[in-house]
Design a protein around this nucleic acid. Structure first.
Lengths: 231, 231
DNA sequence: GATTTCGATTGATATTTGTCAAGCACCTGT
DNA sequence: ACAGGTGCTTGACAAATATCAATCGAAATC
């Protein structure tokens, strides 16, 4: 079914309001590919040849320097990545690899830029998307600079508990990646989980349960301007 | 001379390509005000009523949580801030205060959004601006997560030495703010300067001189994908 | 079913960073 | 010149975090 993904992409905020003909132009050069787990899709520093859209599976955005590596974000369906690099015709700042088997749509960056130059609705949608991304990174920076690793973990757990709408949930990534995402070592994450036990956090493998959410929240002090990813 | 600022603003990338009539619409509600040093312009969490443009002076963007405070960025002429919040009609994530006597233009956010909805050229300019901002924050996050405070300071000095095109230059902000910007305490910054002495960094008040830039660079390992603010 | 592999954990230790308190240096206004 | 304020620096100490090595345990492989 080579056409099924079109509707999927068309429904994305980014593409929903644009001209039909421009959407067709974009889709003409687009191809969809399924990648196995742990495949490198992009290496930081490479030119941004394609705008990527995750249709299924998940992708890790990470960055390296001087032999160190850190995880910057996880991209889940259905959303795009390296939009900013595509627009600015600049090298990618982050690398990307699949976490699991994933279907990815690839839109030639040239086409994206060309349509962007003529389709105002598309430009406006990109603005909204980029503004969202920007605000997410700013929140992340505040999290990193204003909180200790224990506080970051506590707030991470609260956010995910809220998203799961349950005081019990599964971590959706390896602990080593969670550690990198939160800006600490895996060893430190282990100890941080221990450190949250007094606040009612129980860990068993990737299963987390929070026995007293209010108690945990009193410690974590979640803040809309850091932890609310919806605005 | 109440009209001089118009030309200044019109020349900004953000406003250069838009329709004359739309620019007029924006300017109609715009006013320019001069603020003394250390005046709070915006408090995080407040609605984003105005897009701000720094015409002269400089503005500190900072953020607080749980009694802690950190500096996120310095805005210098001529550029805008809180563009993302304005577009998304969302609360500001950062607070802003003048560092010195500053002239600031204030554009009602409603007008900005209205023009944005009809003027494709304006929307495209906003995209480029936001993509730039986004990439800057991503670089910042990499700096924070991948480097120690000593490495961050070393790379900061190299960037500013390059900008000044000289191995001797003046810090353009208080050391306490530099410390907050680099994600450390003022005490730690003092020690970090000491720690860079073996690499030829000499500090005298706000005057910095780097006696052996290559030696410092060998330690700092500057990286285009973190330290190059032009792409 | 045994083996291997790899991530997670733990303990011991080192490094980095922050905190507190005191002193210093420089500016400013009187 | 002086006093007061403010930011910077320093030292002693404490807390946070990283590193290294060893072990554990569950899942994958043979």
């Amino acid at each position: 079914m080579p056409e099924t993904y079109r509707a999927e992409i068309r429904q994305l905020d980014l593409f929903a309001d644009m001209e039909d003909s421009n959407f067709e132009t974009l889709m003409r050069g687009t191809y969809v590919q399924t990648f196995p787990p742990r495949i490198d899709l992009i290496t930081e520093g490479d030119p941004s040849d394609f705008l990527h859209i995750v249709l299924s599976g998940s992708v890790d955005l990470f960055a390296c320097w001087n032999g160190r590596e850190t995880s910057m974000a996880t991209v889940r369906p259905v959303s795009t990545f390296i939009l900013a690099a595509t627009i600015r015709e600049a090298p990618n700042l982050m690398s990307a690899r699949t976490l699991e088997k994933s279907r990815i749509a690839l839109l030639p960056s040239e086409d994206v830029r060309a349509v962007f130059d003529t389709d105002g609705a598309f430009a406006r949608a990109i603005v909204r998307e980029l503004a969202q991304c920007y605000r997410t990174v700013v929140k992340n920076t505040k999290d990193l600079k204003l909180r200790t690793s224990l506080e970051r973990l506590a707030n991470y757990l609260i956010r995910h508990s809220a998203r799961a709408a349950s005081s019990e949930f599964e971590l959706n990534m390896e602990k080593r990646r969670l550690a990198a995402f939160l800006g600490m070592t895996p060893e430190n994450l282990s100890r941080a989980f221990k450190g949250l036990e007094p606040y009612g956090v129980k860990v068993s493998g990737s299963n987390i349960s929070i026995s007293d959410p209010d108690d945990l929240a009193r410690f974590a002090k979640p803040d809309l301007l850091i932890d609310d990813y919806s605005t």
